[in-house]
């Protein structure tokens, strides 16, 4: 089952509360659930609107892929090479302190291409999480298993393929799940400022038209995308980590 009973109940309560509020407040503040549903239907049936959803989705995935590759490599290097750790760790900590909005401003000043700007913003805001997660996973790798593997005198590639990668895999899934939510927020801000398509751009249009139903509809579409993406990551995680045992009490 895609959602648990409790999740469905929670969502139903939120929808009901919204619908109730729409009876007492003006529609430009709280449009009815039906109106929002109609807006979502419009988005789902219009090619141009769907194109915006696809653009945002592609930006999220491209940005996260970039952050994963660069951050993952940095994390592994930090774990493997002490001097890299000494130099890169503070830089990443510094990066973590920079607000996403600052990166939006920097990228607008630095770069011409919209798509590259958005990609850069996503990479810079999510890279530390990938790097630190990979670094921690590498450092917490079992010394016993490393020694066992070394006793067979493997090549570096074999060591990575057969021991390092499976050891850090749970951390990678965690990083993807955590970052997906963050990126959805960042990408909308980036699109608000610089893009001519995407969910962020559409939200800007709704704001200019003072269309709350449209704003809610576009927001919900993004939420649905992020939720589905999370589910896909969880399914892959479940298939990849089927050896992981959970205590009966913790299940």
């Amino acid at each position: 089952m895609l959602w648990k009973k409790e999740t469905v109940i929670t969502l139903a309560v939120i929808v009901a509360a919204w619908q109730l509020a729409s009876h007492f407040l003006p529609p430009f503040l709280f449009p009815s659930v039906l109106t929002i549903g109609a807006e979502i239907g419009r988005i789902a049936t219009h090619a141009k609107a769907l194109g915006s959803v696809a653009a945002t989705s592609a930006r999220i995935l491209a940005g996260m892929a970039g952050a994963f590759v660069i951050g993952g490599a940095l994390g592994l290097l930090m774990g493997r090479v002490r001097w890299v750790e000494h130099y890169v760790h503070p830089a990443l900590t510094f990066d973590q302190g920079i607000p996403a909005l600052s990166w939006v401003v920097f990228s607008i000043i630095w770069f011409k291409t919209n798509e590259f700007r958005i990609w850069f913003i996503i990479v810079m805001t999510t890279l530390p999480a990938f790097a630190f997660q990979m670094y921690d996973s590498y450092r917490s790798m079992s010394k016993d298993l490393v020694e066992m593997a070394l006793s067979f005198r493997p090549s570096r590639w074999d060591m990575f393929r057969t021991l390092v990668w499976p050891s850090v895999l749970p951390g990678i899934f965690t990083a993807w799940k955590v970052n997906l939510g963050n990126v959805a927020r960042v990408v909308v801000v980036a699109e608000l400022v610089g893009a001519t398509s995407g969910v962020g751009y559409q939200l800007l249009v709704q704001q200019q038209q003072f269309d709350m139903a449209g704003a809610m509809a576009w927001t919900l579409v993004l939420v649905v995308f992020v939720t589905l993406a999370q589910k896909v990551v969880e399914l892959v995680e479940h298939a990849s980590l089927r050896h992981v045992v959970v205590s009966e009490r913790m299940a």
Partner: peptide, 30 residues
């Protein structure tokens, strides 16, 4: 000395993500 020395450690040190068969295959795979 690859393949010339076999080691049995204190504790089994099996790879938790591999089946028993795949664990035994491990050295041969390397």
């Amino acid at each position: 000395l690859a393949g010339k020395v076999g080691v049995v450690f204190q504790g089994d040190r099996l790879l938790p993500w591999r089946s028993a068969l795949a664990n035994v295959e491990y050295g041969l795979e390397l």
